[in-house]
Structure formats: structure tokens, C-alpha cells
Design a protein around this nucleic acid. Sequence first.
DNA 1: TATGAATGAGGTTTCATTCAT
DNA 2: TATGAATGAAACCTCATTCAT
Lengths: 231, 231, 231, 231
Amino acid sequence: MSADPTKPAAVSTVRRGRKGSATAGGAAGPASNRAMRAAERRAAIVEAALEEFIARGFAATRLDDIARRAGVAKGTIYLHFKDKESMFEELVRIVIVPVVERLDALPPPSGSVRDLVEAFASNFLREVAGTRRGDLARLIVAEGPRFPAVADFYYREVVSRGVAGMRALIELGIARGEIREKNLARFPQILIAPALIAVIWQSLFARHSPLDAQAMLRVHLDLIFGERRTT
Amino acid sequence: MSADPTKPAAVSTVRRGRKGSATAGGAAGPASNRAMRAAERRAAIVEAALEEFIARGFAATRLDDIARRAGVAKGTIYLHFKDKESMFEELVRIVIVPVVERLDALPPPSGSVRDLVEAFASNFLREVAGTRRGDLARLIVAEGPRFPAVADFYYREVVSRGVAGMRALIELGIARGEIREKNLARFPQILIAPALIAVIWQSLFARHSPLDAQAMLRVHLDLIFGERRTT
Amino acid sequence: MSADPTKPAAVSTVRRGRKGSATAGGAAGPASNRAMRAAERRAAIVEAALEEFIARGFAATRLDDIARRAGVAKGTIYLHFKDKESMFEELVRIVIVPVVERLDALPPPSGSVRDLVEAFASNFLREVAGTRRGDLARLIVAEGPRFPAVADFYYREVVSRGVAGMRALIELGIARGEIREKNLARFPQILIAPALIAVIWQSLFARHSPLDAQAMLRVHLDLIFGERRTT
Amino acid sequence: MSADPTKPAAVSTVRRGRKGSATAGGAAGPASNRAMRAAERRAAIVEAALEEFIARGFAATRLDDIARRAGVAKGTIYLHFKDKESMFEELVRIVIVPVVERLDALPPPSGSVRDLVEAFASNFLREVAGTRRGDLARLIVAEGPRFPAVADFYYREVVSRGVAGMRALIELGIARGEIREKNLARFPQILIAPALIAVIWQSLFARHSPLDAQAMLRVHLDLIFGERRTT
DNA sequence: TATGAATGAGGTTTCATTCAT
DNA sequence: TATGAATGAAACCTCATTCAT
């Protein structure tokens, strides 16, 4: 039952130490104690599962390891998720939702488009490339073909919105004269291509030759917006 | 496409491993019949394994399925490969080597750098994005962290060479005045970023929104080389 | 005898591994029900494995058969033992430890040395030759070279102690004038040689010509102590 | 067909270097060349199989290893033996027959019985304990229960004859007054018990504490024949 | 006669899932 | 609600045996 994806998710940040803040909570009386403990357990499982799936991929991950890492018994997982497969699918949703929410909450554009894009992409790199969130993206790339539902969800919630947002920014840039290449609006993917490259590079090849993602990003933006005077 | 599981053992593009030498030529030499049959079997296994690994990933692929698809008995696989893991690693090598050989055999640069890059990247897109070769790249991205040997090999043989080649082209372009952004030579990855994006896009999101990779590539090159007059 | 494969899980002489402590006493304590069941299962596996290993040797024994005989699922075995090999090694330890404990608990010598030795060896014959314990000895002889750890353990825990004990008795016999052959103390093995012969004979040749081990033992002791007057 | 145990066996000493003396042979013309080569191959297989069976036991021995050690292809084994099981049974026969022949060819008793026994047992120890022949005895002890045919054969050809021979010697010793313990004739096994102990000891425990088998034997004979004056 | 590639039954081991407590 | 012992299907891998050459 708790595998119902409509359920409000109880988990917001995912990050959260083992034993949270307990009873303190919000308005609920003492009755919600158990519910809170359950929610904490669920969060711990989500956290642990994410870690393991990222480290080993879906098929090679053992529920045993997830349970151990989450500090619960193996059976407990089945109180929260129907089975391994749907756990994986829900997982991606749970982790991605807050990302989308943050995207939606972005402040309205102000200042130059270049600054906006640079701020956004720089932030993206800092939070994604070389972090667990970047690994999640790689995980989705890896498992996508076997989990169409996951790929679909990811496309709908993240990719298509991201592309649309980029396109809007590009069109704004073109309208303001900051961007000369008008065709860029047809392929907003180009804008974030180096960022994605960076994500993949960091998790596969950083050992052989580290990549200064921020610097690469600036060069890329220079190509699009024209070289910066000095600043 | 070629992922059709009914096609039992199509040996075509994949290199004949090792023993393929004897009597080779036109008609079947009577002497090396045995050796040839063995080589064919090996090729069939390689082909089948590649297909299965791409479709399901390393851990979820069953040797049983590879054997069935290759039209051999399970035990036969072990006459050619030590175990599943080293089969995977060898596989990547076997498939990548001819790619590298082709890269090495590229004609010396002639004509404008832009034409060179465009010809090369366009060729790359045609042969990789949306083809089994592209899926192989995705497979390597997916399994890389669990197979450092594979990631290492891929970096050494393909990525580092590709990056070096791009860098040389970029420097040539800068020297000839075709490229204005001098910092691009520091990040040759930018040059092929859209191509990689296209590869991933095709295998994950083509269904939701197809991507005209060739057109995207031209726009990207316009950013780098300046817009083309003629088109 | 107890090799009857229809008897599913007779737990009797074999020691309760480890966890057998809780609530132990008279009637079934309600609390430790789980632990007790687990211990019983473990004992059943040990019993069954011993039977099978004795009947077929290490390599020819199938875990499937052990599981069936023990009345558990195949996977259950792996909750108690790491793998087949270490199961075999542990098994020998589990079965031998109580034997050693009994040896250690022997009453201090009283009466004539001949009576002591005769009582001891006669007891040994009754409990070992032609019984499952004797078969275990044969099993160790058979598998020893492939399981040095087992041979070592057996030597350390049983053989070396047995030899030392025999030597002490022999020296006592010499001191008391019961034994004339002083060199016997250098080779205590001679004292138990006929017993070991009996063990092997019973399991290999009893069918062709039964051997009265007790009578043989008395003759052997007559050689050592001189013929008895009374009888 | 060649598995027919009535076939004169072609192998006499078993020991024989890889490529024997070839064509030289005895009387046969050039026609028997092939037959000889076949016999040599067979001998090589027997030799190799013996080595492997001793080292690993029946079940754990691979025909592959036997073939490699014998320097023949795996299929060749099946030209000489029906299958693994009957190869093992034949093997024991082939190796034991010359032993029996030598026993039968022993010179008639002359000199004292003690000297006879000592010469015989000493010889036995030298040739058996700690040698491959001793290991064969251990192999028979190990596999006997699973190969009744082998145990039967061994009993019939070696054990019963050996026991009969010992009994005859003992009776002679009693008649001549060399042996006082008349009951010894009922248990000739006692006579060779220490020798068997030595065989087993050498292959299992020699590493922990070496055993001077010859010295032990002399002490044992002293028990039976009375201590020797000096000599 | 000799070969050794190929087979596939059968062995060991893992692990998602269940369920009595 | 939580547990974790137990299950057994299914995976990987081995190896005795066959058979086309």
C-alpha cells in the first residue's frame, strides 16, 4: 500500500541524519509518533537504496545491503515498497521531485541573460557534477532503457522542463541581442551539453585527467554570448 | 533494428577474433574448416553478448540468453571466455579496436578546418547516434564505475585519442583564423559535447521528442566557427 | 543403521552448535523458540551432512542431498555455513570436539595398567569400529590430503593427545613392571594399531570376513603385557 | 571394447617413461608398431590417472587433467576405457596385479621366521610407506565404500592372500617355538598393523611428527618374538 | 586410431520474497 | 509495525562424454 506513488511522499530533502528531530515535529500530537518513526525509516531506506543503486546499478544491488545500510530489517523494506523494481522507480521520483520544485521556484529573470545562464549552470555544476546527484543522472542514463517508466518520468519532469526553460532564456537572449546565433533556440540542448559532459567525465575519467568544469562552462558561454570584455 | 532476438547469429560488422587468418580469401579452404567454424562461433558469441549486454546491462544479462542467441551451448562460451566478467571486458575491446583503427587511418587534413570537423562529426553521428555503437557508448557509461578496466581502456584507446585529435584540429583552426575563441583548445570536449548528447538522447528520449542531430551539430559548429555564409 | 536416508533429521548425539544456550533447562521456554528451532535446524544439517560425506566423500556429496536429508531448503545451509568446503571443515570440528572433551574427562588411572588400557581400548572399539564415528575416521583418512586444515586439526586435537596419553600409560606400565618392552614408549602407535586396523577392516572387509575386534585386541595386549593367567 | 578386463593388459611395470623404447620391441614385425604405440599410450594414461586419482580422489579428478598429464587428447581415453568409473576400477587391478605376482613369487621360507617376517615387512615398508604405492592403499581405503568392486578385488587378491601368508608364517613360528602367543594365528592382522599405521601416518601426519617406521616395526616384532639378544 | 571442440546435465551459490513471531 | 530465518527459483560455471574430422 505504501507503494502508492500518490502518497505525499513524507520525504522532502532525502538528506536527513539517522534519527531526525523526532517527536518535535509540527502540529501533530503524540499519536503521530509512530507515523513519524515510519517516515524516518522510509527516508532511511530511500537514502540507502539510492546510495546502493548508484554504486552498483539496479540488478547488482542487493536488498540485503540496502537494509543493512538503512539500519532496518530486510522485511521492513516490503512494508514501504512493493518490490525491488517499483522501489527503484519510486526512488527516482522521490529524489527528483525536490529538484523540480527548486527549478520551478527560480526567481524571475533579472540582469543580463548571460549572467542568468552562468549563475544557473554554475550552480548546476556545483551541485551535480561530481556529486551523488550527478551519479543519479548517470544511473538514469544507465538504467533508462530497462525502466521506460523512469526515463519517461525523467523526461517529463526534468528534461522537457529544462529544455523549455533553456529555450525561453535563449529567446530572451536573442531578443535582447545578447545571442547572435538565432538557430540556437531550436537546440537548447547545446546550452547544457558541456554540463552533461562534465557530469559523465567526472564519474568516469576524473582519475585519468581531471576536468575544470566551471572553466569549460565559461568558455562554452563565451562561444554563445561572445567573449567577455574583462569583468 | 539489430536487437531482434529472432536473428540467431548475424556475423557482420564485428571483427573475427584472433584465429580468422587461415586460408582466408574467397571460397572455403578445405583445410582450416575447423578453425573457421570456431572463429565463426566466437564471432557469434561476441555479437550476441554485445546485443544482450546492451539490452540489459551486465548484471541482468544471462549467459543462457547469450548462448541461445548465438546458437551455441552454454558451455561453448567458456571455451572462448574465462567467465562473464572477463567476457564483458574483452567484448568492449574487441568491438572498440576496429573503431580505433579507423580513427588512426583518417586521411591527413585538407580543406578548411570547419569542413574537416563537420565531415568527421557528421560521420560520427551517422555511425554512432541511434546505432548499436551508440548503445555501446551508453553501456560503457553505465558500467564504467563497476568495470574500471573497461573505463580505463576506453579512456586510453578512444577518449584520450579523440580529445587529442580534436585539440589538434582546434589549434589548426585557431592558427588559420577560423576559430576565434582561443580557449577552446583547453576544452576540446566542447567540440563533441553535442554529439554525445545526441547519442544519449537518441537512446533515451527519441520516443518523446526526436532530435535532428545533424542540424544540431551544424548550429553548434556555427557557434564555434561563425555562421556560414553559403549554407 | 543411522545411514537410513528415510530418517529425515535425527538430532541426537551431535552437539548443538553455538546458540543452544537460552532458556535451556526442562520444558520448552516460550521465549527462545526461534533460537531453538534454528539450533535444531543447524544440528539437522550437521547430522545430514556427516552422513552424506561419509557415504560419498566430499566431492561426490551434493548439497541438495544434504538439504533433503536435513529437511531444509538448499539456501538454509548457507545461513549456517559459508560454503561446502568450510562446512566440511567445521563439521569435523563439531563432531570431534565432544570426543576430545570425553577424553579429557577420563578418570585418573587406578588398578593395573593392563586393565586401564583394555577398558579404554575396548570402549573405543565398541564406540568407534563399525559405527559412524569409525566412518568419520575413515573419512578423515580419505580427505585429509585435500583438507590439510582438517588433518591438522585432527592431529592436534585427537592424534597428538591420544599418542601422549598412550605414552603416559606405557611409561606407567614399564615403571610398574607390567610392560617389559621398554622401547614401546617410543611408539605408542603400536598400542592402538590393531584398533585402527579394526576400524578400517569393519568398513571395508567385514562383508568378506568379519573380525572379532575385541578378541584381537586381547591377543594384542597379551603380546604387550604377557599372557593373562586367569581369563 | 578395450575396456575388457580379460585383455592381457599390455602393461606390466606401469612405470615407464613417456616414449618407451618404441619399435625395438621383442619379436613382432613392423605390423605391431601401431599396437605398441597404443599400448604405450594406454600405459601413459594408466600412469597419469593413478597419479591424479591419488592426488584428488575419484570424484574430484578431471579427465582433462589425466589427458594432459598423459600427453593424449581427452577423447583418446575413451578408446581405452569405457568411462571414468570403469577406468578407476581397472586401474586398481592393473596396478595391483604385479604386486600380487611378486607376492606369489616369494622364495620358500628359510632361516628363522623372525628374519623372514622382518625382511618381508621391512621390504614392504620401504616400498609402500611414503611412496605412491602407499597412497594407493589410502586411495582404496578412501574410495572402497563407493567402489565395492574395488574393495572386493583388493580383498580377494591382496588382503586375503596376505592374511593367509601371515598366518602360515605365524603357525610356522609357533611350531618352531619362536612365537609363544598361540592365539596370534587367529589374528594375523596384528602382524602388519603397525605397517598399515605407518602408511597412513606418513601421508597424513608426517609433517607434524615424522615416524621411523622401520624402528617401530622392530619394536613390534620384539613384542611378538621376544627381544633380540644383540645381533 | 586420435583429436579436441562442442555439448548440456548437473553442481554450487545467490538473493528477492515470504511469513511466523 | 518490524523482524530475519527460511525458502527455492534461477544464475554461473564445470566437466564427463560424444562425434565430425
